[in-house]
């Protein structure tokens, strides 16, 4: 697997992520991996020392990671939020909107298609944590 695709100025965090259980058991890890069934809110007491949360997508159809990402961002997490696994180009835009800023897809993505996909929708309908103004805000200033 090559370097993750990142949208952060500080690049990808290099420390390998540990499981949630081992993260909660030790005090010095700064990178953790969340499986789909694990509760992102278990990380909330530790957001300050986390540099990387890797959210696993074993199958792209399992959308729990989208909620995990938003919960972390909504709670003030600013470190790297990485989607890893069955991450496909057609899901990238939604993942970005939920707060993911790096991607480690199992199968490489075509950079040209990534670019087109991310730029496809100019304005979103919903307010999310990604900071883009929702259409209702543009309508009403």
């Amino acid at each position: 697997m090559g370097d993750p695709l990142t949208f952060r100025t500080d690049g990808a965090h290099e420390e390998p992520a540990v499981t949630l259980d081992s993260f909660l058991d030790q005090s010095n890890a700064t990178a953790v991996r969340l499986e789909p069934g694990e509760d992102a809110r278990a990380l909330l007491p530790y957001l300050d020392r986390l540099a990387l949360v890797e959210v696993a997508f074993p199958a792209f159809r399992d959308g729990r990671g989208y909620s995990a990402a938003r919960i972390l961002r909504e709670s003030g997490y600013t470190g790297e939020l990485r989607a890893q696994g069955d991450v496909l180009v057609d899901q990238l835009a939604y993942m970005r909107r939920c707060g993911f800023d790096s991607f480690a897809p199992e199968k490489p993505l075509d950079p040209a298609v990534v670019k087109t996909s991310l730029e496809r929708y100019e304005h979103p309908y919903q307010a999310t944590i990604d900071g883009r103004a929702p259409i209702w805000k543009l309508r009403h200033g």
Binding site: G63, Q91, A93, Y94, R97, C98, Q126, T128
Partner: peptide
């Protein structure tokens, strides 16, 4: 309709 269209969190529900 507008809120649910292209909802980033709820497009891969159970």
């Amino acid at each position: 309709r507008q809120w649910s269209s292209f909802h980033p969190e709820f497009s891969y529900l159970p």
